[in-house]
Write a protein that binds this DNA or RNA. Sequence first.
DNA 1: TATGGGCTGGACAACGTTGTCAACAAAGGG
DNA 2: CCCTTTGTTGACAACGTTGTCCAGCCCATA
Lengths: 339, 339
Amino acid sequence: MTDIPRTARPTMKDVAARAGVGLKTVSRVVNEEPGVTEDTISRVQAAIDALGFRRNDSARLLRKGRTASIGLVLEDLADPFYSPLSRAVEDLARAHSTLLFTGSSAEDADREQELVLAFCARRVDGLVIVPASEDHRYLEPEIAAGVATVFVDRPAGGIDADVVLSDNAGGTREGVAHLIAHGHRRIGFIGDLPRIHTAAERLRGYREAMEDAGLPVHGNWVSCGPTAPGRVRAAVESMLSGPEPVTALFAGNNRITVTAVRVLADLPSVVALVGFDDFELADLLRPAVTVVAQDPGQLGRTAAGLLFQRLDGVAGAPKRVELACRLIPRGSGELPPVP
Amino acid sequence: MTDIPRTARPTMKDVAARAGVGLKTVSRVVNEEPGVTEDTISRVQAAIDALGFRRNDSARLLRKGRTASIGLVLEDLADPFYSPLSRAVEDLARAHSTLLFTGSSAEDADREQELVLAFCARRVDGLVIVPASEDHRYLEPEIAAGVATVFVDRPAGGIDADVVLSDNAGGTREGVAHLIAHGHRRIGFIGDLPRIHTAAERLRGYREAMEDAGLPVHGNWVSCGPTAPGRVRAAVESMLSGPEPVTALFAGNNRITVTAVRVLADLPSVVALVGFDDFELADLLRPAVTVVAQDPGQLGRTAAGLLFQRLDGVAGAPKRVELACRLIPRGSGELPPVP
DNA sequence: TATGGGCTGGACAACGTTGTCAACAAAGGG
DNA sequence: CCCTTTGTTGACAACGTTGTCCAGCCCATA
């Protein structure tokens, strides 16, 4: 009956031929442009339905210039920390009738660049990037060509661009000060690789808090490196032994915190703990884990909001937005020092 | 010096003009096609670098027919359960030089359809869908037009399509049988909305396990509904009161399990618990939570693998793949019944 | 010198859509 | 009755790329 071609999709031309009208008239009907008779509309609509026509938005957007799509590059789609961030970006994208490309850099600079440039080759209107690379000059021609770009969680390297950050140093200062206020004097810091901006900032916050309180930082009280459980375990054990064992730990991100909880659970000693990043069930552990919480959803919302402002034509110098962190005392950070 | 136009992007035409060659020669250089002199190549390359040209893949793919992109629709990007699934799909996409559109249906049928059709309008080569809708006949013309489609986690409604599932009923049977083996006779089931396929299957598994053991299921031992904490709390409290209080609970998904843990922590009674879906830190709670674990990463890998097989031309009847679940005893499911 | 073949390069159409503009018919005013 | 106005419609070019095809050119061979 209906002669749907099995292989090739029907185009406006096919619809036009079947409805006995011109190509442009079909376009008008599809786009609900005014100036088409009711009668013609229904004839075209019938042809559309019969053929199962669906407008090819790729062609449309090629013609129009904008693609109504943005790219989101983050470190790892599988990391729960970024889930609310992605969702927030997606929600704003939807509100702007924009589709979302996503990809993980896996903390690899080359992969980040490859992904970003692939998005640019698709002519995304904008980018939200959680940087893995330290040098983003490769983006200069793209930004000059009009690709709106907002960095989240970490600043861009080598270029001046919009960025939305958490107050990593301030949050860490607050967390460490919290431990100090509960009587701790020997506090260890276990962080991520220092080449990662957030890790460096948090380390800085730790040092500042110790200095503000006039406390020394001994050699083995600071350990930075990959978040692999083995490395973290070794660091904890080293800090808890020796002539000056720590009585409290500050863990530099959620994965480190979780590993620290595991390690401490195996040990007889009572050690206070504050972690950076909140995580699900932190309140159900015993002791419940005190954390310095970022709001990843807010991070994403702010970044995407800024992006769409730019796309709406808001010009001006690159903005730097810093979101406050929130200390959530739950128990592990209020344990008194045990000598 | 270099005259990069601030507004419009350079095209192959611009590059050709600047290099003093024909349009097609630029195309040849960009695509590394043979038949161009070293000398010409370097002249063209110089023009490309000077102008900051980047090929417009949208136009390219319009011409070529395939878009080298696929769409992933899941329930909620922010749900940690789906994170490994997304990541697995992304990894396979990358391996096939394919870009990934993502979106959340928010468990809303209209939103799912809107997203899917938006992807189709962009002419994605394929789709991976975690269905929210019960009727996917709207996809028939798309599938006929050649859009490869694989459903994950839940089957499609109204059409015959590839699907990758977990063995929800079998896993639940095993979990409930585990409780029965530990002496429980009065076991409650708290599940998600029964219109969701996985929820219905798990309920079926529960009923089968009880029946297999010759155990009755009393009226208030089964509660299905939204995963809102208030509803779950009420259900738990109701099951634990009355003339026939349950001594064990089976929680139908990770969110329900977590709420159940919270509720039980507030109560004096000791209640055994097995939850469907593993979750981070389940082993650190006291008691550690016994779960029936799916492997969301494997779900995603299998689905994407099947999708790319189809895209590579593997024909044949729609496949239905069912992945086994794994019981992970950790403590909460091995508690003896307390009358 | 003519011929042929291999190599290089360019003109042109096509992908499916939208914007511009002009053609045409019907209706209204003088 | 003609001219203008209004409303509807279609022809055509353009978006940026790739595939097809043909025109030169250079060199070797007859």
